[in-house]
């Protein structure tokens, strides 16, 4: 009987010591709960309808075809996600386009430093005629594809 009590007492002090160690182990500097502000989607701007004209325009700019509705949906989601930016107050903030904005970046002298590499350059072109790159007729706009008929 005595022996059993002793074991229990021993194990409870061990538990206590472990609890203490655990408490000690956890730093108070790292927050215990996530600190992000929940975003109320209702407050964000609505994604405008991506009508055929917009889609065709984007295809022409991108020179890639959407081909199916999935591509349009992917774009919709990307815009919806980006709209969270409108939660941030940027009144009076200047845009930042380079982290080196306060440094003068180096410009080298306007001298020819290489050349005579015609063969090197042309070797990567699939079609060459007499050292010229070859392109089919220009100034013909991209034909739009019908998104609805292709799955």
């Amino acid at each position: 009987m005595i022996a059993v009590t002793r074991i229990t007492a021993k194990s409870s002090t061990r538990n206590l010591r472990q609890k203490l160690q655990l408490n000690n182990y956890f730093s108070s500097k790292v927050p215990d709960e996530p600190t992000w502000v929940p975003i109320d989607k209702e407050k964000l701007p609505k994604v405008p309808e991506l009508d055929e004209a917009t889609v065709n325009h984007l295809e022409r700019l991108s020179l890639v075809k959407f081909n199916n509705q999935a591509g349009v949906e992917r774009l919709y989601k990307a815009i919806e996600y980006a709209n969270q930016l409108h939660m941030v107050d940027t009144e009076g903030v200047e845009p930042l386009d380079s982290v080196l904005e306060n440094r003068s970046v180096y410009l080298r002298e306007d001298k020819v430093t290489d050349g005579n590499c015609l063969k090197d350059i042309l070797q990567n072109a699939s079609l060459v005629v007499e050292d010229y790159f070859v392109a089919p007729p220009g100034n013909i706009p991209l034909k739009p594809v019908d998104k609805k008929s292709s799955k």
Binding site: E59, R60, L63, V64, K65, A135, P136, P137, G138, I140, P141, L142, K143
Partner: peptide, 8 residues
């Protein structure tokens, strides 16, 4: 067909 079609 055309430059744009080729690129696309």
């Amino acid at each position: 067909e055309s430059t744009e079609e080729l690129i696309a």
